[in-house]
Structures are given as structure tokens and as C-alpha cells.
Design a binder for these strands. Structure first.
Lengths: 210, 210
DNA sequence: TCGCTTGGAAACCGATCGGTTTCCTCGCAC
DNA sequence: GTGCGAGGAAACCGATCGGTTTCCAAGCGA
């Protein structure tokens, strides 16, 4: 099987072990590992080996297996660690004064922005769930939680905006989000306003005013 | 990494080598291989090894590598072989007398039906594209073609029904299709009419009459 | 200075990876 | 009967898999 990328290995361990770099690398072993895992698993898939993961993270396998019982748990933990930053990127700031509709559209504008990047690989949560092929996998559980959080945000804003059926609208918007991600992956090109346009149709139909 | 399934191996080779079974197994080596590949790759992911693939297909690696240059090509070819049956399942018969809207909704009804199965793993084309993580991969090319075919069907029916912007509507419907698939995978439960309902909203908004 | 914990490096385990090759047995045309 | 091609079984290649273990050096409190 062809590797997705030649794994450019951005000067991983050697520089990370010099004294002053070690001083600046204040992140704990666990954090370094999970950050590297999140990036590697997203970029190349959860099929990446522990060997390669530990090499790029600058963490020994010994340390890794003291922190986690198995690779599956590393996958789930990396997803969990990346989730807050992912949500912070997608969602609007908590208390901006904008109306619900604008706050919802913010998410789709962010998605269009992210999907324009050539290394966009879709929603990390969905990608992980698709790859592990099992709803019971710890990573699938984390993915489910993350998607529920997005839907909950949609629903909360829909309620605030007086939509007809906030729960239904929220699930529909999540579908548009994931469908747009999938399209960007398969078509290997930007969304060109398609996600924004489709979400708008649903918001209009639900009677959520601008 | 935990296997997605314990690979129940539905009595593959032994029965398939008895004389009369061999007589009934008129499928060519190539077809047997690709059929097994399509099922295995969909159920367990493209990470399955050719060793396991050839074992379950009852085909020697030698024969496989005479037919295909690499595993990547097997993945792409298996997708290509499965595509017609997949489309035949989703799409309505060519000349049924039903109006465009009903023909479009047929696809989403089929999707809801498929997503209700406990072993549903999403759209095989999207799943493959997500897993291989590369738009240049031969399997991604096949997936793109398949998705384009679905969009083309939507657009053709949208035009026939006099929708306002058939091309846009078709892409939006494809997004709903893929988003619904993703939801069924992540939530590990049926769609409960959500795909049908969402598609309906878009059809209404586009002015496509029942 | 001692003893202890921490954790990195790396060997090691059996299994499997994608891929190639050798051997040998079929079935079939002549 | 004989020659030949197709193709299955299986060994083989180096590499890597997930996971465990051994060894040893650094750090640190007492």
C-alpha cells in the first residue's frame, strides 16, 4: 500500500533533546505524544505505527505504554486532546453579540476556510470513526461526543433564534457539515460556498431570521 | 490496534474447492478476488493485508499479482467493480413513470434502509477516499467518479422537474447523502427519517414539486 | 553520598506487511 | 502420449506491526 505522504519528518528528535530546546519543550511527555498523535493520525490515518509515532513525538515506547494501555487508547486520547482546539476553531466566541443565525453560519464559514487547504482530510472525528470501523472503539466514543457537542451548539442557537424545530434543524446542520467535509475530501477541491449556501437553505426553511 | 471484527470467515475456501462447488463458482479469478476485496475492504478497511485478502478470496498471491500491479490497484478495481451494483441499489429503475422528486427521494429512502443495518459503514466510496488520504490514489479517482455519477443523476432529475438551480441542488443533495451516511456511522444508529426530511427541505426550497 | 524513581535507547517477541519467486501439478490442444 | 501454459502452494525477502523487557543514565530528596 502506498503511503499517503512520504512523511517529511520535520527534524523531530535530535533538536528536541538539546538542553535549551528541552527547556522550551515544557509540554509533558503525555502532551507531546498526544499532539504528535493527533497530527499524524489525521494526516496519515490511524494505521500509523507506534514505532513511527513515538519516533516523531520524541517519546520512548516505554513511556507511552506507561501512559496508555494500548494503541487504541492513544488514538482516543489524541482525539480527545485535539477536540477543544477544534471546537474553538469552528465555533464563534461564547459571548459575541451576533444573532443566532450569524453564529451558526460562522461554523460553515470556518469549514469552507479549512476545506480550502490542500491538506484538508475532513472532520477528524468522522475520519477516525470511519477508519476504526467499530462503534465500540474508544475513538468512536470520543468522536460521537464531539459531534454531539457541535449539534448541541446548533440546537442552542436555533432555540435562541426561535427556529421551528431546533433539535431537527441542529441535526440537519450537522449533516450538512459532515457532508460538506466529505465532498471536500472526495473532490479534492474547495467547497466554493456550497456549505454556506446549503446551511442557509435549511435556516431559511426553519424560519431562523438573519 | 484492535481488529474491527474478529473476521468470522464464512467458511471460505474449503467448501469452495469441492468439485461441484468449483463448478458453480463460475466467476473468474479476477471477479472472485474483487468481490472479496470489496467486501473485506468495506467491512474492515483498506488496511487489510493481501495475505488475508487472497486467503478469503481463494486466490493465490501469484495470480493476484498477475492481474494487478499493486495493492492500490486492487483497491481501486474492487471499488470500480462494486460501483454498478451500488448504483443499481441506490438509484430508481431507469424508466419508471414516477416524477423527478419521487425518483430523487428514492435514493434517500434506500440510504435510510441501508443505514439501518448494524454493519453499515457509510458510503464505500467516501470511506475509501477518507482512508487512503490521498486524492491521487487510484481508489480516490474511482470514488470521485462514483460520486459524480450520483450528483449527475440528481441534476438530471432536478432539470426534468424544473428546479431553480439544478446543478446547485444536485450538489446539495449529494452533501445531504454523504452527511447522512457519516452520521449513521458516527452515531451508530439508524437515520430515523433524517436524510429523507433534509432532502425534502432542499427540494422544497428549489421549487421541485411532488 | 546514598538510594530511589523516572524514563530514554534499544533489543526482542511472534506476527504480518507488500511483494517476488520457485516448484509442481493440473488441464488441454495436438 | 506429449508438450505447454495457467495457476495454486508456499517459501522467501526485508520491513514493520503492536507490545514487552532489559539495561542504564540522569535527577533528586534525605
Amino acid at each position: 500500500m502506498t503511503d499517503a505522504t512520504p512523511a517529511p519528518t520535520t527534524t523531530p528528535s535530535p533538536a528536541a533533546t538539546t538542553p535549551e530546546t528541552r527547556a522550551s519543550t515544557r509540554a509533558s511527555t503525555r502532551d507531546r505524544l498526544l499532539d504528535a498523535a493527533a497530527e499524524l493520525f489525521y494526516r496519515e490515518g490511524v494505521g500509523v505505527g507506534i514505532e513511527a509515532l513515538c519516533r516523531t513525538a520524541g517519546v520512548s515506547k516505554r513511556s507511552m505504554y506507561q501512559l496508555f494501555a494500548s494503541k487504541d487508547e492513544v488514538v482516543a486520547a489524541s482525539l480527545e486532546r485535539a477536540a477543544p482546539a477544534y471546537e474553538a476553531y469552528l465555533l464563534p466566541p461564547a459571548g459575541d453579540g451576533r444573532p443566532p443565525r450569524a453564529r451558526i453560519m460562522h461554523v460553515f464559514e470556518r469549514l469552507e476556510e479549512a476545506a480550502a487547504a490542500p491538506d484538508f482530510r475532513g472532520c477528524p472525528l468522522v475520519a477516525a470513526a470511519v477508519e476504526v470501523k467499530s462503534p465500540e472503539h474508544p475513538a468512536s466514543v470520543v468522536a460521537r461526543r464531539g459531534k454531539d457537542a457541535l449539534t448541541a451548539f446548533f440546537q442552542q442557537e436555533a432555540e435562541r433564534g426561535g427556529a421551528e424545530n431546533p433539535a431537527l434543524l441542529a441535526r440537519q446542520l450537522t449533516i450538512v457539515f459532515d457532508g460538506s467535509s466529505a465532498r471536500a475530501v472526495v473532490q479534492a477541491c474547495g467547497l466554493d460556498g456550497l456549505a454556506v449556501a446549503t446551511a442557509s437553505v435549511l435556516l431559511d426553511a426553519a424560519g431562523l431570521p438573519a
